[in-house]
Simulated assay, not measured.
Amino acid sequence: MQGTGIEFPPLVEGVFLCRLNRFEAEVEVEGETVRVHVPSPGRLTTAVDPGMPCFLAPTPGAGRKLPYRLFMTRPGGHWVVIDSLVANRMIKQMLDREGLPGLPAGRIREWHSEPRWGHGRFDFEVIDEEGIQHLIEVKSVNDAEDGVARFPDAPTVRGARHLRELAEFQRCGDGRGWVLFVVLREDAAVFAPHRAIDPDFAEALGDAARAGVEVWAIWSDIGPKGMWLKGWTPWRPG
């Protein structure tokens, strides 16, 4: 594997049929209808559609109820990653190899997953070479329209609460807060909060940015075999 990125497991091609509920869908594989796990809590409005090509990853573990999980789709010929865990995997690779914008890997002393702060947990905690604590929240973005990647695609009370806690952490002067939106599709070049879907989240994101929280969109080259870091762009409230 070249550069900062992750390799995908071998994938099985199918045709998306329908979403049964939040976490299950039906897919056609080699002429048979198969029920699969949907590893994303969002609505996936612009990422799945009946008749669309899709790609499945085997579900590890003997005796699992569903043999596959919906891993990728290809609306309009563009790759879109559905599995929300891929975003955290990409950030782990960045912390080990690339670092974060303005915080290269050589300045990272240590990092941990799922640190506690306030009333909950964040995705990552980084301690830099000066002993400063960085709390990081990662968001998986697979919704886009007219070249604009958008988050969320469904209301998220928990997401807005995390943003307000990061703003509080930043204002306390204990360290630095980060929100990293990992864009999991290749047909977008700009990121914006989806105000029409969740105005409270959009407002909380603006408040966090004004408090000094680092807000970045992470962009990657995506294909059927993996995903490699292309760069990042800062987001600033209008």
Rank of each mutant, 00 (worst) to 15 (best):
V86A: 04
C54M: 06
W235G: 05
P50M: 12
P237R: 10
E165A: 15
Q93K: 13
D83K: 05
G159P: 08
G223I: 02
G238T: 14
I197Y: 00
R74C: 12
A211H: 10
S40L: 04
E13Y: 14
L100F: 05
K225W: 11
P193Y: 04
P115G: 07
E13S: 14
G106M: 01
L184F: 02
V15R: 14
E165T: 14
S40W: 04
Q170E: 15
N88L: 07
L229S: 07
F16C: 13
V29G: 06
G147P: 08
K92I: 00
P41S: 05
R150I: 00
R176D: 14
V15A: 06
A105L: 13
A208N: 08
K92C: 10
A47S: 15
T233H: 11
V86E: 00
E32N: 05
Q170A: 06
G118V: 02
W117I: 02
R161L: 13
M94V: 12
D146G: 03
A25P: 09
Q93D: 10
P155Y: 04
A196H: 14
I108A: 03
G173L: 10
K225E: 12
G42P: 00
C54S: 02
P104C: 14
R89E: 11
Q170M: 09
A217T: 01
A25W: 13
L205T: 09
A149L: 08
P39F: 11
V190G: 03
L205A: 15
L56Y: 06
V141L: 03
D198K: 04
E28W: 01
P237V: 10
D49C: 10
W235D: 01
E32H: 13
V29M: 03
I197L: 13
A204F: 13
H134T: 09
G231Y: 07
N21Y: 04
F191V: 08
S220F: 02
D146I: 00
D198N: 13
C172Y: 13
N88D: 05
V15N: 01
E137C: 08
L17N: 00
L229H: 06
G102S: 10
A208Q: 07
R176V: 15
V148K: 13
R236C: 14
G177E: 10
